[in-house]
Amino acid sequence: MKKSLLIAALLLACQFIGWSQAKKPTIMVVPADAFCERYGYVQKVNAMGETVSSPDYSRAMKENSDIRTLVAAMADFMAKNDFPIQSLEQELKRLQTEDAEMAMMTGRSGGEVEETPLERLRRNARADIILDLDYEIHRVGPQKQVSFNLQAIDAYSSKIISGNTGVSSAANVPMTSLLEECVLSFKDNFLSGLQHYFDDLFANGREISVTFLRYDNCPFYFDDDIVIDGEDYEFGEWVEEWFQDNTVEGRFTTGASSGNRLRFTQVRIPLYAQNRKGRDVAIDADDFVKPLVRELKKKLNVTVGSSPRGLGDVWITVGDK
């Protein structure tokens, strides 16, 4: 109780005095799968031996000027609110160059794609919030009308932060007018949804996921009993206790657990913590688990590594890095 009060007071102080700032989430607009399907911006991908179609963002961005208009209009208002939008186009270009470079270095030819483009994009672009954008142009005789559906998704928890659907005016005017009307229509509602999400973030902490993976080098399985501080614990149990002590109001959910894998979701972590020098700093998932990693290393004498997947997801590998 005392701890939570302290956190709350700390949060308040941070908000208003702002002596330390949380990391600003990065935001990216991505055309919805349904949109890509509808307009044929799809590519066949061989995933685990099966051919599945997946969105071809590159083509969508290159060939569809409407979506560029929408992204530009959204980038404009987000920038005005001090949240510059990450450019999907630039990110795609960067990925392409990276792939090319990688291919040259390893000499491997493509074809063994194991991730869908979205997964790859999410992994590489590390946007914290994905704006999933879908729109459809309806023709009503000589008039056009745009219906839109914009969902802001927390990239790690995959939760919808804010959903907005609606229609533009029906008119025979240039498409850009109707598209921009859509953006202006949902703008404030969307921002309000984001604000709500951020408020929750500041009040209840950031929601992250933590996954423990066991390497073969690890001398125990996660469901084995091990001795820590002279007491017998099941590894998972000990970790759970650690979470209970360190999450905001002890909030987290234990997901799938097995001898090789432990997953914790909806882990609410404080936005700020004290660093070794006693200063308040903003933390992300990786920072949050660092003390845990240190403690594990010290107490179990095994190699423990942590690899962040963006701000809200972290993999802890036990037995190797």
């Binding site: 533009s168 005016s169 008119a171 005017v173 007018s177 009307e181 202006l184």
Partner: peptide, 13 residues
């Protein structure tokens, strides 16, 4: 309004 005066003609419907 955003759609502007270009949409005035649509009043004709």
């Amino acid at each position: 309004s955003r759609v502007g005066t270009e949409a005035l003609g649509d009043l004709g419907h």
